[in-house]
Amino acid sequence: MPKHEILSDKEKKEVMAKFDVNESQLPKISISDPVMETMDASPGDIVRITRNSKTAGKAVYYRVVVK
């Protein structure tokens, strides 16, 4: 399973600005997802996922926590 981390407010703003998107346009992750249950997440948080990719080595993906 790839690494999941919840972003701080500052990082969140940076991510939004970098991709020029709002929360509803990001991929989602359910708050009842087993990984989210182990972390202290609340809806609206953004999770940074660092995947081990076969093509890119490490790939960073973002998901927004939803109900």
Partner: peptide, 13 residues
Amino acid sequence: MCMNEQISKTKHL
């Protein structure tokens, strides 16, 4: 957006 995995920085851009 977030497509860096599909389009890794090779000739596959």
